[in-house]
Design a protein around this nucleic acid. Structure first.
Lengths: 164, 164
DNA sequence: AATCGAATGGTAATAATTATCATCTGAGTG
DNA sequence: CACTCAGATGATAATTATTACCATTCGATT
């Protein structure tokens, strides 16, 4: 099995298509197509860097020097909410620690953010023995499974649900 | 293939053993065994919750009412550095966004924090079709591969390296 | 018991993000 | 096309998590 880094040319074509469809997708989601949003989604699609809000801000300011950083933060979150973008760092709001040093992965409840350990030996097998990955030196891997826990799944789940 | 959530009883035994070995492991790592560190690693090992610093702080304060929150943050980071703990949220320091909605995973350079996309159809196949995971409802999954990129691998890599 | 570098507590500083709110504008409506 | 208004934006204050700083204390070795 060869792990394949994503091709740059293909990404560019994909980005162009997504940008063309953006207005229609906004309409479907009930979002206004503002120049700021267009500039932000464009900057995001043209970047292969998985940028932070400040990087998008810097890029967009070239065209919209008066845009607010708050707008960039808000817009990126909005885009994620309507499924036009994805936050790579699901749990980025505060550091979470784990004392368990054995190989394992995590199931994260997208709502209450509880994390459960899970073992997937098959996955570890797929990766083990590989020392390299293109130009990258492999150090380890962690699968984050997004899920809804039993408490949050229930329609009238109460308490114990943090944030959101 | 059955994905297996980690068993609670096993975790407790593991935690007890790790705690017994803690002093010896500190000595090996050149760390002083302070009451604060002991309390923090104990709280971490006894929690199955992948806690935040503030949760550890609350727990430890029961025994050490004068401990500082800064000490908790510092100690948790130290424990990760010497391999006694693991930060679940590798990239938690700021949000990273991705405009690519196609199924893919990420290779993260642990040093400069660059992120590259990678496709692993085999992995997607392992997970697809599964609607449930014990009491959790599966929504998606993202593999984070920790690696060292070619720039950071080089002994005298300069520039372009952020943080660290 | 003496020593010393590391660890801690208290607090200030920083960084990222969110909240607030007055103003503006996209996109339907007539 | 002008009108309307919910939603979007900009400016800035507030909040949250984390790190920096530094004087004091303490663990571990002698």
């Amino acid at each position: 099995m060869e792990l394949q880094l994503v091709n740059e040319g293909r990404r560019a074509g994909y980005a162009a298509r997504r940008l063309r469809e953006f207005a229609a997708r906004c309409a479907r989601a009930g979002l206004a197509v503002t120049p700021q949003r267009l500039a932000i989604i464009q900057a995001l699609l043209e970047s292969g860097e998985h940028p932070r809000a400040d990087a998008i801000y810097a890029q967009v300011r070239r065209v919209h020097p008066h845009i607010s950083l708050a707008t960039v933060h808000r817009t990126l979150e909005t885009l994620c909410e309507v499924g036009e973008a994805r936050k790579v760092t699901m749990l980025h709001d505060s550091a979470r620690y784990d004392g368990n040093l054995t190989p394992h992965h995590h199931v994260v409840c997208v709502k209450c953010r509880r994390i459960r350990d899970i073992e997937i030996p098959e996955l570890d097998k797929v990766l083990e023995g590989r020392s390299g990955l293109g130009k990258f030196t492999l150090l380890g891997a962690s699968l984050e499974i997004l899920a809804l826990c039993e408490r949050c799944k229930a329609p009238r789940a109460r308490a114990a649900n943090r944030r959101g």
